[in-house]
């Protein structure tokens, strides 16, 4: 029998929720542990095996000089590197510091700023090393994670949709909250994968799965602004868990600039 592929799980700045998703796959966990060698997964096991690893799952964003160095060493150890979750794929909620003065943040929270070593920014893993595949979500969807592991074992590309939340809302017959409630919903520009839980629970999508392929945020946000949404609120809506993803970032920056100049954002023609 060929040796089992070696799986490693690494953590950077994050809440642990995405790696917990592997332990939350209660029906599949023991089968996964039989099919792959869980070689490095500090949250779940004490034994660690030396690299190289066939697959590395990376959770969390890069926020310290030490971590910027560590991710390079991890890349060298992993044949296939997969980022899991909003922190690793776009910088996470902690990337809100990228719009602020981190020294001010430190002095607000800590009595001794001199003990804290951190970078001015929280950045996605792909800003530092080449990433082979990314699994989106805040948190990731455990079924997508199991699909990813299965696909890697079978040597095929994981089936993960890149279309918008809207598509799944229509498929599931969930009433459109943007239309019915008139709320600003990020569903049209956000990648599917969550199971459209927010609209199904009568609230707006707030972008946990990040931008879908080719999203048109200027058009969507312009539409909401024309219908009376406050520009500053729209900036906050786009600037959260995936706020530093390029498409969301550009949109919130443009909106902020326009609001500062007193302009209404471009309406769709």
């Amino acid at each position: 029998m060929a040796a089992k592929p070696k799986l490693a799980v690494f953590k950077f700045a994050s809440c642990d929720g995405c790696q917990l998703s592997l332990l939350d796959a209660e029906d599949e966990l023991l089968a996964v542990a039989d099919a792959v060698e869980i070689a490095y997964f500090l949250e779940a096991r004490t034994r660690t095996l030396e690299g190289p690893y066939d697959v590395g799952l990376v959770e969390g964003s890069i926020t310290t000089a030490h971590d910027a160095e560590r991710i390079r060493r991890i890349r060298d150890q992993c044949q296939f590197l997969v980022t899991i979750g909003a922190c690793a794929t776009s910088g996470g909620i902690q990337s809100l510091r990228n719009w602020a003065d981190v020294n001010e943040f430190i002095s607000q929270v800590y009595a001794h700023p001199e003990y804290i070593k951190t970078l001015a920014t929280s950045t996605p893993v792909a800003d530092h090393v080449i990433v082979d595949f990314e699994l989106r979500g805040c948190p990731i969807n455990k079924h997508q994670l199991v699909e990813l592991v299965a696909a890697l074992l079978q040597g095929r590309k994981p089936r993960v949709p890149r279309y918008s939340v809207c598509i799944d809302c229509k498929r599931k017959h969930v009433v459109c909250v943007a239309v019915a409630q008139g709320v600003a919903c990020l569903g049209p520009v956000t990648q599917a994968g969550c199971g459209v839980i927010c609209p199904a629970y009568h609230r707006e999508c707030f972008g946990c799965f990040g931008p879908k392929e080719q999203p048109n945020l200027a058009s969507l946000l312009g539409h909401y602004a024309n219908r009376g949404a406050d520009a500053v609120q729209l900036v906050r809506l786009t600037r959260n868990f995936n706020g530093y993803a390029p498409e969301f970032r550009e949109a919130s920056d443009d909106l902020e600039t326009a609001a500062a100049l007193g302009n209404t954002p471009d309406a769709p023609s």
Partner: peptide, 19 residues
């Protein structure tokens, strides 16, 4: 690494806090 939640919560809306 520190993530500074207490800092970036400043200026956010009430309804965003539980999320």
């Amino acid at each position: 690494p520190p993530r500074f939640f207490e800092s970036f919560l400043r200026g956010r809306e009430i309804r965003e806090v539980p999320d």
